[in-house]
Design a protein around this nucleic acid. Structure first.
Lengths: 248, 248
DNA sequence: CGGTTAATTGACGTGAGTCAATCTCCGTGG
DNA sequence: CCACGGAGATTGACTCACGTCAATTAACCG
């Protein structure tokens, strides 16, 4: 059903991302690449990689594509709680808990590696740099989650949307997905609404305001940030919480 | 300055909490108790245990008292992103990142154990059950953070405040801090506002509504939940995300 | 060319914020 | 014993950012 997966080096974004956290050893990289090769999968847009309530027994590392983590209330209200980008891992450790407390849906076609728990534990145990890098990634993901709470709780709509765009820009940058000041942006206004806690209508108007000030161009799934500095100021954005800087 | 700390068994809430995640071994408990004894500290209400931007080099395990994690925007807006209760650990692993991305403030007098990184790593390495339990605790904390995003993003004020009360109730229960249907509740309306993304005035009115429906009594730092079932229904609350059930 | 999903607009309603005054505790000092 | 001050809780009046509803347009796809 799926075509064979044979692109040049699928593990590239993962390695770049983890390397930004901790210098990976040659050995660690090799082990990781092997594990990824052994568990390649694909998902289609709209497909759920995991659903709230599902048992968890493996870790997924995203190689290409965009996804989102989301939760749904009984009456249908939906909140996207995070985006998942290439190089991110889904639940590097949620498997310590038995059950998913949220769902993970693909926004685009997605390639990922599914690593079963035993293989994953072996991987962690076999290389220290890899273990630390993966834990770091998990910690950063928590930090992002905290910032989202702040974003939704204390920023007004314009700041809020601007902040989300800044975050995505900063996260796409280190994995080589920013071209100049532009990037693919496969997020519908409905997704943006569910991610920011706003209504679709208001997101639409907010985007128009950002466009109107010449800060961004967003059309045809392509985002261009004309004035990053000003966008960050608008959003009260500081990248510190992304912990991108390598540390000693 | 501080009186000596010699209460009966300070480590009790920690052990209860971790045991709810993973059955701790005798050995693990002993090691943990020793580590806690070696690093006892106190903090006073209003004091910050850590401040955004601080370097991190130790783990703090809370033995008694309430704290909150919070972030502040440049113009003073504040968002509490989580409460920290006895048995919780502060950043069991944020120390993998070099710098705090948020602050941690004491709401009440607090007793905690400060365990330096080397001692903490040794602790984790020496007992498997302890290591897993502490990672679980970290994962649950992430799950809570996600639920807060949903709470603030998609629930209306009444649901939102009710949800927070339900969560705190469920978290206080396993550490023995619920007496009947009541508990100490040292959280001001200003704190509640900063935790729910509402204004103080609106929190006040929302509490009155909850009181008016006979769901809760809240006065003199004492919270009584008269009708937990109904409060949960009001909040669209499900405790699943707290992953309290032990698993096999 | 229909059918669908996403984006956009306008009109209107409202939940929640802001401002500002008042009230209630408390602890402190004279 | 009481004036004073400060923190927290409470109220009322008013405002507005954002939501809802509903219709229209644009883009895409077989």
């Amino acid at each position: 059903m799926h075509p064979p997966i044979l692109e040049g080096n699928l593990a590239q974004p993962v390695i770049r991302r983890l390397n930004a956290m901790r210098q990976l050893s040659e050995r660690g990289i090799a082990l990781l690449q092997q594990a990824i090769q052994d568990g390649l999968h694909r998902a289609r847009p709209g497909e759920d990689l995991a659903t709230e309530g599902d048992p968890v027994d493996s870790v997924r590392i995203i190689l290409s594509g965009w996804l989102c983590r989301y939760k749904t209330l009984a009456d249908g209200r939906r909140q996207i709680v995070n985006f998942v980008l290439p190089g991110d891992s889904c639940d590097a450790c949620v498997y310590l808990l038995s059950v998913m407390d949220h769902s993970i849906g693909a926004l685009t076609p997605v390639t990922y590696a599914d690593i079963k728990r035993p293989a994953f534990e072996q991987l962690l145990a076999s290389d220290r740099s890899l273990e630390e890098a993966l834990w770091c990634e998990t910690m950063v993901s928590s930090a992002i989650q905290r910032e989202w709470t702040v974003n939704i709780g204390r920023r007004v709509a314009l700041e809020r949307v601007a902040h989300l765009l800044c975050e995505l820009y900063e996260r796409l940058l280190p994995i080589g997905m920013i071209d100049g000041d532009s990037c693919l942006f496969p997020v519908t206004q409905m997704d943006l609404a569910d991610a920011t806690g706003l209504s679709v209508v208001h997101v639409n108007r907010t985007l128009q305001e950002l466009r109107g000030s010449g800060l961004i161009v967003l059309r045809d799934r392509m985002l261009t940030i004309n004035d990053l500095k000003l966008l960050k100021d608008t959003a009260l954005f500081s990248a510190d919480y992304l912990h991108t800087k390598r540390h000693g």
